[in-house]
Design a protein around this nucleic acid. Structure first.
Length: 422
DNA sequence: TCTGGGGTCCTAGGACCC
DNA sequence: TCTGGGGTCCTAGGACCC
């Protein structure tokens, strides 16, 4: 059996561990750029705030209902996530960290009768040692464990955050779950299967697997199989090596000039290069995309992307920037209003094993030393201290991000340690 | 005024090769 | 008269996830 353990309103819970005054109050954590709500306390959900609701639409609740909105603090959440993992590993060595707030556990050796107690014990331990409340879903496959977790959430607090999806009531429970709540079934897939008369998870389980393959592709077939208890997604204890890395931003307003777009591409690529080198990687492919305003009039919307293969995998910002700007130039069309752009580095290798050219081309030692010096300065003196020319002037950048309500890095920065008065 | 960002996987079509 | 077919690789785009 698999278990899926996930933190309830994880980001909000992390903030509450550090600031107990947030308990019992409507709290949301905002996405990057303070754009929309990505985590909501139960009190915030009760105010009618939905997942992904834009901040400007719920801001009025700060005054009228005591809503507290916080910028996201990934240093804190990442650290809390590692602590939760550490506790879970005491309950089985077979753990797959799935996202910052979710892990799959392999409990295949455990007897059916003992699963609920084990779930309760691990849940209590996580709460005790990290302060994070969780829900545990248990099922025969990962997909069923995800379903069970969703059911455990819906049944809070009555079911005490645990749902064991097995036995005769399984079909009944699946029948109560809309098909769109199944892991891997998004809006497009839900619409497709609804045309076939499938509206619940139970309907999907009964769908002919060949039909699922035909209509939904291999992924759809896997989902149907997994709902039927046939495991096709093994536990991945070791995370696979990263394949791509991106820096993307929505601009504060539309950009109509190529100069503005190219400044953004230089800045994004510089940041992407830092991330790349920080992980000891090199990239072999640089892709750029430009988008219009997805909330604007539909006839003005556009979405284009183009990529450039590098002759040699590189971690050199100069090489990456040249590629990104040339890809951007291919995409740019005068008269279009650009609202979002991004740089994606693909085909990543560890720098140490990157294939060298026949004549030893690639990033030379002098360029590597330069990049190391630039990264060192930016780490020490603050992001953006040194960089390539062409990234625009700070303060006039339309892609500047805001995080006006960020809490301190309580657990990862000495100067931000919380003070305790006794 | 104000609507996120960073990932993965799959598919389809074209280029190319034999 | 009658002009192959199968494989791989690359790229762009779609869908989904958190």
């Amino acid at each position: 059996m698999y278990a899926l353990v996930d933190g309830n309103a994880f980001y909000v819970s992390c903030e509450r561990v550090m600031d107990p005054k947030l308990e019992g109050r409507p709290v949301i954590v905002l996405s990057n750029n303070d754009g929309c709500a990505v985590a909501r306390s139960n009190e915030a959900k009760a105010l009618g705030i939905g997942m992904g609701d834009p901040y400007f639409k719920v801001k009025h609740l700060e005054r009228s209902a005591g809503l507290i909105a916080l910028s996201s603090n990934y240093a804190l959440y990442g650290d809390m996530s590692a602590r939760v993992l550490e506790v879970l590993r005491r309950y089985t060595p077979r753990v797959e960290p799935y996202s910052i707030d979710e892990s799959f556990l392999d409990w295949s050796g455990v007897e059916l009768g003992g699963l609920r107690d084990l779930a309760a014990a691990s849940r209590a331990a996580v709460r005790k040692w990290t302060g994070i409340p969780t829900c545990v879903g248990i099922g025969k496959t990962k997909t069923l464990a995800k379903v069970a977790n969703k059911l455990a959430k819906k049944a809070l607090p009555a079911a005490e955050g645990i749902c064991l999806l097995a036995g005769p009531e399984l079909q009944e429970l699946l029948a109560a779950l809309p098909v769109g709540d199944v892991w891997g079934v998004g809006p497009a897939t839900a619409a497709k299967v609804q045309a076939l008369g499938v509206s619940t998870a139970e309907d999907l389980r009964r769908l002919d697997r060949r039909l699922a393959r035909q209509v939904l592709g291999v992924l759809g077939q896997k989902i149907v199989d997994e709902l039927n208890g046939l495991s096709c997604m093994p536990l991945e204890e070791v995370p696979p090596p990263r394949k791509s890395l991106a820096v993307t931003r929505t601009f504060g307003r539309g950009v109509e000039q190529w100069e503005g777009v190219s400044e953004a591409l230089v800045a994004f690529t510089s940041r992407a290069g830092e991330k790349l080198r920080g992980q000891g990687l090199v990239a072999s492919y640089v892709r750029v995309f430009l988008n219009g305003d997805r909330f604007g009039p539909t006839d003005g919307y556009f979405s284009r992307s183009a990529g450039v293969s590098l002759p040699q995998p590189s971690g050199d910002t100069g090489v990456l920037v040249a590629a990104a700007v040339s890809a951007g130039q291919q995409l740019w069309q005068p008269g279009r209003v650009c609202r979002r752009a991004g740089v994606v580095l693909d085909g990543l290798y560890p720098a140490a094993i990157a294939p060298a050219g026949l004549f030893g081309e690639g990033d030379g030692p002098r360029r590597q030393a330069l990049m190391a010096a630039v990264d060192g300065l930016n780490r020490k003196m603050g992001a953006g201290t040194v960089g390539l020319a062409g990234a625009g002037i700070a303060g006039r950048r339309v892609w500047a991000t805001t995080s006006a309500k960020r809490t301190p890095c309580y657990t990862t920065r000495w100067t931000d340690l919380p003070a305790v008065r006794a």
